[in-house]
Design a binder for these strands. Structure first.
Length: 199
DNA sequence: CGACCGATTTGCT
DNA sequence: GCAAATCGGTCGT
């Protein structure tokens, strides 16, 4: 049967919505926390001005140029981590940013890590998600099949369960509707557009 | 080597 | 609604 990397090796615009509902689990000394993904964004490598890989390979983004099925983690704003799942073909340098999710395991541990924030907000936002899962730069490049950081795909959501819209916080290519989220889910980040798309 | 920027969150107004 | 916090990556001098 096909491995995770094979499933993630398709075009990122097809893989990203496929990730909605999938579960990311991180095992640490303190225990396990798992998050069900409710919001992701697609970044399409060398053809995408919004992608870290747009200006070519650097030590930071090298993982994006490798095979699908690995985590690309970067540090930003001097204090936050964000996690992507590398997908697409090798050297395509495409990835899906994990923007939000629902904590489905290790709720108590996630509450401690997030220091009293409401359960709904534990992983609502890309840096919050990394905080709840205790993702750091040491997880950059990690295989998502072998652990301690894993991705478990679930059956795809129906098209009526998926909404799309512009990506968040980009200076360029802000017009491309490459953000995907689960319809009406309360854990989707607050930057969702004011008006929902027609049912 | 120095300057500037960023796929953000939080807290205060 | 807005600005501070804070630092690695990238690029220009």
């Amino acid at each position: 049967m096909p491995g995770l990397a094979d499933l993630l090796a398709g075009p990122v615009l097809e893989v990203a919505p496929r990730l909605l509902g999938a579960v990311v689990r991180h095992r640490t000394r303190d225990g396990d926390v798992a998050v069900r993904l409710t919001e992701v964004e697609a970044y399409d490598g060398d053809q995408d001005p919004g992608s870290h890989a747009y200006r070519g390979r650097t030590p930071r983004n090298a993982v994006m140029f490798g095979p699908a099925g690995h985590a690309y983690v970067y540090f930003t704003y001097g204090m936050h981590h964000c996690m992507n799942i590398v997908c697409g073909q090798d050297d395509r340098a495409s990835a899906a940013l994990l923007r939000a999710g629902e904590v489905v395991e290790g709720l108590d541990l996630a509450r401690v890590r997030r220091n009293g924030i409401r359960d709904r907000d534990l992983a609502r936002g890309p840096a919050r998600l990394c905080s709840a899962l205790a993702i750091t730069l040491s997880d950059n490049g990690a295989h998502l099949e072998r652990g301690p950081l894993t991705l478990e795909l679930t059956s795809p959501l129906g098209s009526e369960q998926i909404r799309t819209g512009p990506r968040v916080g980009l200076r360029h290519a802000a017009d491309r509707p490459w953000r995907f989220w689960q319809t009406g889910d309360p854990t989707v980040s607050t930057y969702r557009p004011a008006k929902a798309l027609p049912r």
